[in-house]
Design a protein around this nucleic acid. Sequence first.
DNA 1: ATAGGGTTAG
Length: 469
Amino acid sequence: MRKTEVNPDNYTFACVLRACMEKSDSRGLRVVHGGVVVSGLEPDMTTSSALVNAYAKLGQVEEACNVFNKIAQPDLVLCNSMVTAYGHGGFWDKSLEMFREMLKMGIHIDGYTLVGLLSGFADPSLLEICQGIHGLCLKAGFDYNGYVGSSLVSMYSRCGCLYSGYRVFSSLSQVDLVIWSSLITGFSQSRDYEMAMLLFKEMNMKGVKGDAILTASVLAACAKFVVVQPGKEIHGYVFRHGLVLNVMVTSALIDMYSKCGFAHLGLRVFETASEKSVVVYNSVITGLGSHGLASQAFGIFEEMLFKRLIPDQCTFSALLNTCSHAELVKEGCDLFKRMEVEFGIAARTEHYVYMVKLLGMAGELGKAYDLIQKMPNPPDSGVLGALLSCCVVHGNLELGKIVSSQLSQLEPEKTAYGVMLSNICANDGKWDDVRKLRDDMVGIGLKKSPGLSRVGDGNVPYSNCNRDI
DNA sequence: ATAGGGTTAG
């Protein structure tokens, strides 16, 4: 088009911007934005709206805001885009402010406005505001709107109030797949796995067929709760409903089998899959690695490189996890270096956790401590906690004291760290030190609540189960 | 030209 006489107009740019958004192409987005600026076209609602959406989707809310501010009299669609941009960025307060601004300007809100606004609320502390918005949805007559309905259901589940979500669900006159999906996913994410499975069955009985997103989500619930039987049934469901080719379903299946202890079944799903994404590879590497099958996991990584797939941070999490399970210290250190040098991926907190576990469990506590000192950001409780457990395993009281004092500064009310430290003394028979440490905890008003574990009997699924048993 | 549910990672 650029090589012909035909010039792009605002709508052309909006279409191309949408493509950049769908492809998550930040560079392309900047280039097209540049094209809009130099095209000589007046900044208009259509392109601005597309720009706001694209920047927000790629996490650049500030840039979205800049675009928005250049328009003197934004219309409904442009305002909706901005409300949604703030909502998706997690800036619920700014989203709400924008919403109020719209009302002040006399703009009549619609379903898009409410969906955008609702998407920003994700914390139990915001429940009252959420209820207010819910009230507004009812008063403005949007209770028939399926988009608003599903947003309300997932908003309530994000705020930890799932039974309010269930009431919204029950009040809807038309229930489609996405609304079912919001509800079922909500229950499985709130750890109410049994309810999630029950609703999934009920949905199927009503003749609604699950799609890839919902099926992957239900499989994730099976993985989280370590129940292979329903997982297998859903594997059959996947075949019957033609979902085998979907990479999301494939990775969820691999993960489900691996988490339930059947790494070989996960591997079989992997081998028979025709479509394989980076996530599919990551899932199978994680599964094999967690079962100590390091050489197979490395083999799959090689295959991935051979197929010219680009490994991501998660791939290296999986690989480092593999090394720590198989006590492969040298391989782990090499991979940690390769990740940055060869693949340009900066080490994140979880990568440091794996490295600490790898070095620490091998008895290289000094090296683990040195590595932590070199972290770009100060270590959080996850990294330090990993190091403290290694101190317990190797009976290193000296380092254990240093680490646990750093931990108690980060999380003063957590009692487990003091107990771990006292266990080092107990293993060494130093009962006077044990008593002193325990007395100190009581002295500052800390009380260790006893641990509780529950085991399923093989037929009855675990409820509230602890996977470490 | 704008909406809703989302697989892998401590």
